[in-house]
Design a protein around this nucleic acid. Structure first.
Lengths: 181, 181
DNA sequence: GTCTATATACTGATAGAC
DNA sequence: GTCTATCAGTATATAGAC
């Protein structure tokens, strides 16, 4: 069964936005790779921004679900560990890893984009769920860095010293250690 | 004593590149803030890229010096701690903190820029200096995250829960913990 | 759904006067 | 050292034919 054009636009856009940056990627490039003209894109998406919104949508839903789950649980060490595990699992899911990377790499270009603002808010809320109200600065930074570590490792994969699988396992281990007091 | 125009261009460019992104900031904007025309900028800098090169230059020199120092030391826990301390101190220096943020936020836009490639290489070399040759994946990721943690904290400052000073001290503490086995 | 053609605006960059 | 004027190129976006 052939993919429809809308999906192919999303795939190509995500790849180019991630590789080259959002601003550096023109609709002409996307259209050329797809084998159509720019105008055809405007049939499927109202604006360039609209492509971003559609890309980020699924990930936003996932983060919201994760936050809702965390809030439904007691604030225990076990909950925190599971929260980080679920976060890492979400990042690893094939559909979302690309979107996460795209967002990581285009923070500035998209700084006023509503979906990025929303993502950032959700991330801060997740960090809050990793902390008790009276947490010390070291605890807060440490637990924030735990979530961050899940992403940080990916930056090392390109360098070739470690495989993707090794990095993922090691990142999770490091994140777990950052949750401990 | 009045600042010269070249310096003011650098200051304005750094701020706008950081706030809005490199691609999203036009030379027209920079010129307008400075109160001159675009053409005047071209007297001081040959190209837009050239402004970036001038901004990153000092930081590159500092990273190179830090790497040279690390290589002149024995690979001991004490050296590793001091390396991270010196790295954090460099980041904190008023002239460099801005450049570091600018580079963090514009990774994609500058992905082919020689100064960013060089910065990334130096960072990887610093991570290597934090590791023995036979280091496990967890050690490698952990010690890389230590350097990363110095930056990671800054991301939390905007949120207002912690002061800049608290975050800096806490980040260093977290980084130190990530060096331990 | 996709096309051609076009509108409108902005970009980085240069030439040459003052 | 800064200006005016301008270049060539590209961008997002739209109108209307097929």
């Amino acid at each position: 069964m052939r993919e429809d054009t809308r999906t192919r636009i999303q795939e190509i856009a995500l790849r180019l936005f991630t590789e080259q940056g959002y601003e550096a990627t023109s609709l002409r490039e996307i259209a050329e790779e797809l084998g159509v003209t720019k105008a055809a894109l405007y049939y499927h998406f109202k604006t360039k921004d609209d492509i971003v919104t559609s890309l980020v949508g699924n990930r936003l839903v996932e983060l919201e679900e994760l936050l809702a789950w965390a809030r439904s649980q007691p604030k225990t060490p076990q909950t925190r560990r599971e929260l980080v595990e679920r976060y890492a699992a979400g990042i690893r899911r094939t559909q979302h890893i690309g979107v996460a990377r795209f967002l990581e790499r285009n923070q500035t270009a998209l700084r006023d984009h509503p979906t990025l603002t929303k993502t950032r808010e959700l991330m801060m809320e997740l960090v809050n769920e990793l902390n008790e109200p009276g947490a010390t600065p070291v605890e807060r930074v440490s637990r924030a860095t735990a979530l961050f570590a899940i992403h940080a490792g990916k930056w090392m994969i390109d360098e070739g010293k470690l495989s993707e699988d090794e990095v993922e396992k090691a990142s999770l281990e490091v994140a777990m250690r950052l949750l401990e007091p």
